[in-house]
Amino acid sequence: MTEHDAAVVQGEGIPKARVDALLRAVPPRDRESRPESLARAERQRRRWATQVVVTDELARRACADRGLAPPAEVSPALLLSVAESDVADLGSIVATALAHSPAARTLLTELERQQPVPEEAAWEYYTRNRDRFLTPDALRRGVNPFHGATDADFVPYEQAREGIVRDLRRAAGRRAFFDWLDQARVGVEYAPGHEHPGDPSQPDHEHRH
């Protein structure tokens, strides 16, 4: 690792310049006024950005290994917007990586495609979540899906099935992406000041990913 590297992935240095470019593209979320709080927030922001860049690099390598061709690179200055719902569901590191990295999005799409959704799983979801499948008319009438509703008050399974399978496959693909990332990050080396923001060996670590 050289002084210009933020991390080393599989023996190859990841330049600090890539982290700096991402930091310039993403405004700080914290609004600290005290010098010591601002310094801590900036340290954590740099660590967070390093994780986003490392995720991008790992995804590039995973796509190459799988013969996948991500779309053209997007400049960090043109970073795609990150939905708050994605931050809530995925954590800010993964949500931003998917917005920043064409390779990460390509890999996630491939992992989703690979996920099998058995018919019994789709049917079980339909029967366990009846409230999600009330017809518009039943919703207008305030039908209680768990008491007194009839079959006519629900969208038939045959109509709901495609959406259920899509949602279950998407959820399974995200779990597969997290599993892949946890394994891919093993062995990554970080320069001082670029460690994972949740690294318990750091005195100011936190788990807001």
Rank of each mutant, 00 (worst) to 15 (best):
D30C: 13
E32M: 12
E57K: 08
P102I: 15
T96F: 08
A121S: 13
H196I: 03
V8H: 01
E206A: 02
A171F: 10
H4C: 00
G163C: 03
E42F: 09
P71F: 12
T96M: 07
P136K: 08
P156T: 11
R208I: 02
H207D: 08
V188K: 10
Y125Q: 04
A104R: 06
P200L: 05
R24M: 03
R132N: 06
R60Q: 14
A121R: 03
Q51I: 01
R141H: 13
R47S: 11
L58M: 02
D182T: 02
V186H: 13
D153F: 08
V155Q: 09
R61K: 07
R24K: 13
V52S: 01
L80S: 14
V19W: 04
T135S: 13
F154C: 15
E42L: 12
E84D: 15
A191H: 11
D153N: 08
L79D: 08
E73R: 13
H205R: 13
R175T: 02
A171H: 08
R166I: 09
V8F: 06
A62E: 11
P156I: 08
L134R: 11
A176C: 12
E206F: 01
D89N: 04
E42I: 05
W48C: 06
Q10G: 10
V54T: 08
A88G: 04
P203W: 14
Q10I: 00
S33G: 07
P102Q: 14
D30R: 15
H147N: 14
F178R: 13
E36S: 13
R175S: 02
L80T: 07
A77W: 09
P76H: 02
D131A: 11
G198P: 01
A97S: 15
R43A: 13
P136R: 14
D5F: 00
W180N: 05
G198Y: 03
E162T: 15
A49G: 04
H196W: 04
C63T: 00
A25D: 05
D89A: 04
Y126W: 13
L139G: 01
V26P: 02
D204W: 14
V94N: 01
P15K: 02
Q44E: 11
W48V: 04
V53F: 11
D30H: 14
P71L: 12
P203D: 09
I93F: 02
A171V: 11
G91C: 03
A184I: 06
E112L: 03
G173S: 10
Y126F: 15
R18H: 06
A17G: 07
R61S: 09
E73W: 07
P192R: 13
Q202A: 11
A104E: 07
A64K: 10
V52Y: 12
E119C: 01
P118A: 09
A41G: 15
G11Y: 10
G193F: 13
A160W: 05
L68C: 00
V8N: 08
P27W: 00
T106R: 11
N129P: 03
I93V: 09
D137S: 15
E189N: 06
P145H: 14
Y190S: 09
R128E: 04
T50M: 05
A49W: 02
R66E: 10
A184D: 12
D179I: 12
P200K: 02
G11N: 05
